[in-house]
C-alpha cells in the first residue's frame, strides 16, 4: 500500500528498531526452526511475511530483504529494480521516470536512511544483484539461518571440504560484495536454499518432456564447465541432499 509504505519510511527509525528485536528473536529460535525443519516452515512463514511486509512496504518477496540498508523503502518497487541508488532519470519534482505518479523509491530511501542511526552508512554499501531463484521465499527464515550459521562458524570454523559449483558461486558473490554480505547476510546467502523455495522449479523440471531419462546425475559429471548449461536448480538439490541442515 502506497500510503503505508511512505508512512514506514517516515518512521524508518521505529521500524528498524522493531525489526532488530524481531530478528534477534528469529536468530535465537534457530535451533527450534532446525528441529521443526526449515523446509517445512518455509511456506507458512513466507505466507505471513508476504502479508505483513506486503501491507507495510509493498514488499515484492525478492527473498533477500535489504530494507535496513535502504531506509525502509523497498527497492523492488523501483520499476528498474535498482538496489544501489536512483537512476539518472529522476524528474525535477522527484517523481519516477517510468511511473511519474510515484515518488522515486530512492528519494524515499535516502530520506529514510537519514532518519536511521546507521542508515547513511548502510545505504552506501554496494548491494549484489538479486538472486532471482530466491523469489517468493522467506527472508526472515534466511536471516535466522544465515546469522545462526555465521555464529556457529565464528565459534568453530568448519573444515575445508570440496566446493560444489553453486557453493562456489555463492562464495564468489559474497566475496565480491563483502560488506553487503557482512551486514545483511540474507542479501548474499551462503547456506543451501530450502527445498520449498525450489519446489515449484523441481516439479517443472522433473515433468519436463524435454528431460532426457538417460542424463547422468549431477555429481557424476566433472565439476568444471557445469552450472552454466543446465541451470543451478539441480546442483542445488543435489547439494541439499548431501549436506542436510544441522
Amino acid at each position: 500500500m502506497y500510503a503505508a509504505r511512505r508512512f514506514a519510511v517516515r518512521h524508518a527509525r521505529f521500524f528498524e528498531r522493531l525489526y532488530n528485536r524481531f530478528e534477534a528473536l528469529m536468530v535465537a529460535l534457530d535451533p527450534l526452526f532446525a528441529r521443526l525443519g526449515y523446509d517445512r516452515l518455509e511456506r507458512p512463514v513466507a505466507f505471513i511475511e508476504r502479508a505483513i511486509k506486503g501491507f507495510l512496504f509493498d514488499c515484492k518477496m525478492c527473498g533477500q530483504c535489504v530494507l535496513s540498508s535502504t531506509g525502509m523503502a523497498c527497492p523492488m518497487n523501483c520499476p528498474k529494480n535498482l538496489r544501489n541508488g536512483p537512476c539518472g532519470g529522476v524528474r525535477e519534482d522527484g517523481s519516477c521516470e517510468v511511473r511519474p505518479e510515484m515518488r522515486c523509491v530512492w528519494l524515499e530511501a535516502w530520506e529514510g536512511a537519514a532518519r536511521m542511526p546507521r542508515g547513511l552508512e548502510r545505504i552506501a554499501i554496494v548491494q549484489p544483484p538479486v538472486d532471482r531463484a530466491l523469489a517468493g521465499s522467506s527472508s526472515w527464515l534466511r536471516v535466522a539461518r544465515e546469522k545462526a550459521a555465521e555464529r556457529r562458524r565464528a565459534m568453530a570454523p568448519p573444515e575445508p571440504t570440496a566446493v560444489s559449483p553453486p557453493e562456489r558461486a555463492r562464495s564468489t558473490l559474497a566475496k565480491a560484495f563483502r560488506r553487503a554480505r557482512r551486514l545483511a547476510p540474507s542479501a548474499a546467502p551462503l547456506a543451501a536454499e530450502p527445498e520449498a523455495a525450489l519446489a515449484d522449479q523441481a516439479v517443472e523440471e522433473t515433468t519436463s518432456v524435454f528431460e532426457s531419462p538417460t542424463r547422468q546425475p549431477p555429481h557424476q559429471e566433472s565439476g568444471e564447465g557445469r552450472g552454466g548449461e543446465n541451470g543451478g536448480g539441480e546442483d542445488r538439490r543435489a547439494k541439499h541432499r548431501g549436506a542436510s541442515a544441522p
Binding site: 520499476p79 528498474k80 529494480n81 535498482l82 538496489r83 544501489n84 541508488g85 537512476c87 554496494v126 548491494q127 549484489p128 544483484p129 538479486v130 532471482r132 565480491a176 560484495f177
Partner: peptide
C-alpha cells in the same frame, strides 16, 4: 520486456 537483472553499480562490481 525490461530486464534490469543488474543495476549499474552491481554491474561495475561484476
Amino acid at each position: 520486456k525490461p530486464v534490469f537483472d543488474f543495476d549499474s553499480v552491481s554491474l561495475l562490481r561484476t
